[in-house]
Amino acid sequence: MNSGIPLEYYLIVATIMFFIGVYGFLTRRNLITILMSTELILNSVNINFLAFNRFLFPGKLDGHFFGLFVIAVAASEAAVAIAIIINIYRRFTSINVENVNELKY
């Protein structure tokens, strides 16, 4: 039944993706890139869900459901975030987070 690719490989890919996402989230100043980074983080989690479901509970579908759930949340989140980003762009003609600091003072 095992196709030969061990669980660790999945986890390594997911971890790499997760930290790429975190790195991008923390370092980028472009809102679109930050949004893309969050998508990476979410997808790395999806990989984990599916991999664990596949290896630990092969007969069950809980992991799949969670994966679908995350995809749905990610899609709506992307829609909302992009709407906000478009509004910010109209307001500031920029999507650099450092320019968006009017509420700070």
Binding site: V22, F25, L26, T27, V97, E98, N101, K104
Partner: peptide, 12 residues
Amino acid sequence: SGQLQQYGFVFV
């Protein structure tokens, strides 16, 4: 600082 990313960095 008010920079969310800085807070995020500290948190992570």
